[in-house]
Write a protein that binds this DNA or RNA. Structure first.
Lengths: 253, 253
DNA sequence: CGTTTTACGATTGACTCCAATCATATCCGG
DNA sequence: CCGGATATGATTGGAGTCAATCGTAAAACG
C-alpha cells in the first residue's frame, strides 16, 4: 500500500527527532511507535543513515550525537588508575556535612565519581565544573551548587568575573584543586583565568587540598598559582621519596 | 588461562575509552580489537554495563551519554511536534548579536535544539538550564553563560538566591520563558522558586517571550507568574480562535 | 607450596536480526 | 483515467547474537 510522499517524509523526520532524544532505539520500538512493519522501519532507518542523520547499529539505530564533553572525556581516560587512587585518598578527607569545592579538572572529576559510588552525606558540593555538577546532582543527600559564569566549551567549566564573585556567597570547608605542574617553587596551571579563580578559592577555603598525579611533578605551566605554604594538604599517587626529590616541602608529605 | 587482574582491568578501561570515542561498537569488533573470544568480550561488556559505564545493545554496546538527565529527557518526549513548531517560530524572533535568556523547560530546550541545528551567530545565550548550556556550549559563535545557584536534580536547573542575583550582571534582549498554565488572568507555574526567578527576568529583559503549547491553555498552577500585559510576545502552536476563547488579550494574537 | 579463585575459550541450542525477493495496493504523472 | 512508480508487508534463508555450561590453566591467597 503505497502511502503519500509527505506522510513518509514526515514519519522519517519524526523518527530522526525521536532518535535525537533517545540516543538509542531498538528496531522493534520503532515498529511499535510508528505502527509499521519491521521492513519499513528498517527502510526508514536506512534512509536516514544514508543521509548521515543517524548511525545504524545491530538491532536498532543511534542518534549521531554531539558527544557532550568530547575533549573532557578524552583527557579523563588518561592515567585512570592514578586518578582513582588519588580519588580514594581524597574522599577520606571529606566528612559528613562539609562544604567542599570541586575544581574543573579530570583528577577532581575522579573524586566526584568516587563520591557518587560511595556517598558521604549530607554534603554540600560547590563546583565550577559542569560534568561534576551533573554527576553529583542526582545523588541523594548531596546538594550541588554551581558557580555562574561563562561556559568554556573545551574545559566544560565556568570561569570569568561572575564565577569569582559567586565564590563570596559560600563558606567552603575544603577546596579540591587540580594543577598542571608542580615544582620546588610551587604550583602552576595553564590558563590565567583558571588560576584567577583558584587564587580566590585558596583565599576563601578553610583548607586547600591539591590533587596531583605523579606525571605533573617537576613540570611548570604558563601561569603561577601558589607557593607550597599556601597549601594545606597534598593528595598524590607519588611516593614520598619522589616528592622530596621534586622539592616539595616536608609538611605536605 | 586466568590472566593477571591488572591486565583485565586495563583491557576493560581501554574498552570503555574506545566506546566513548566510537559511541557504538559491535561485538565482533571488540573481539578483533582486543584479541579475545566472543565470550570474554561479552563478559567485559557485561562488567562495564553493570557499572553503568556503558549501555548494552543487541550485538554490541553503546557509550552511555544519555543517563544524564533522565527525568528531563522523559518529559522532553511529550508533545514533541508542538514543541518543534513552537521552537521554529521562536527562532525567527532571534537576531544575530542578541543576548537571549533561555528558561529551564522542555519547550525552551526545543528552541535550543533548533538553534543548534541552525545557529544564529554571534549570539549570547544566558540560561539556568544545564541541558541548554551543554547543548549550546559547543556551538561555534554562541557564547553561553550559566547563572549560578543550587542545582535542582529533577529540573536540571539552577535556582535560588544566587541565580536571581546573577541576573543583574546581564543585559538581556529577549527572555524565553515556559509556563505550566495560562488562562484569562495570566500565567502560572508550578514552583514558587521558578516563578521568583522568572519575575526577575520579566523585569530585566527588554522583551519577554512566553512559549506555550496548546495543552497548557486554560490550566492554572499553584504559583502566579504574571499578567498578560507584562508579556511582549506569545509563541504557541494553538490557533488564534482557541487563544481568544481562552481569554488571551488581543495584542498577543 | 597447596588450595581456592577466577579468567578464559569452546560448545550448544534458542533466539534475533538482516538483506533480498515478491505480491499488492496505492500514489503520481500524463 | 490509465500505466508506471513506489511504499508497504510477508516470507525466507542465512548470518549473527545470546545465555548457560564446562573444562582448563593460571593467578591469588593463605
Amino acid at each position: 500500500m503505497k502511502v503519500p510522499l509527505h506522510i513518509v517524509s514526515a514519519r522519517r523526520e519524526k523518527l530522526a527527532a525521536w532518535l535525537q532524544q533517545r540516543s538509542y532505539v531498538p528496531l522493534n520500538e520503532v515498529c511499535e511507535r510508528f505502527q509499521v512493519s519491521e521492513a519499513t522501519a528498517r527502510r526508514d532507518l536506512a534512509a536516514l543513515a544514508s543521509g548521515n542523520q543517524i548511525l545504524r547499529t545491530h538491532g536498532g539505530a543511534l542518534a549521531d550525537f554531539n558527544h557532550r564533553f568530547p575533549s573532557f572525556i578524552e583527557r579523563q581516560r588518561m592515567d585512570q588508575a592514578a586518578k582513582q587512587s588519588i580519588a580514594r585518598k581524597a574522599c577520606k578527607l571529606i566528612q559528613a556535612a562539609d562544604a567542599c569545592f570541586f575544581d574543573a579538572g579530570t583528577t577532581i572529576y575522579a573524586i566526584a565519581e568516587e563520591l557518587q559510588r560511595a556517598p558521604i552525606t549530607p554534603l554540600t558540593a560547590i563546583t565550577n565544573s559542569l560534568p561534576v555538577a551533573e554527576l553529583l546532582a542526582p545523588v541523594e543527600g548531596i546538594s550541588v551548587h554551581l558557580l555562574g559564569g561563562e561556559v568554556l566549551p573545551r574545559q566544560s567549566a565556568l570561569l570569568g568575573r561572575a564565577a569569582r564573585l559567586a565564590l563570596d556567597s559560600y563558606k567552603i570547608d575544603q577546596a579540591f584543586l587540580s594543577v598542571e605542574g608542580a615544582n620546588a617553587e610551587g604550583l602552576w596551571n595553564s590558563e590565567q583565568e583558571v588560576v584567577d579563580l583558584q587564587k580566590g578559592l585558596i583565599a576563601a577555603a578553610r583548607q586547600t587540598i591539591v590533587c596531583l598525579d605523579a606525571s605533573k611533578l617537576g613540570r611548570t605551566a604558563p601561569a603561577f598559582l601558589a607557593r607550597w605554604k599556601q597549601i594545606n594538604i597534598l593528595v598524590t599517587d607519588a611516593d614520598s621519596g619522589t616528592l622530596r626529590d621534586a622539592g616539595i616541602p616536608a609538611h605536605l608529605l
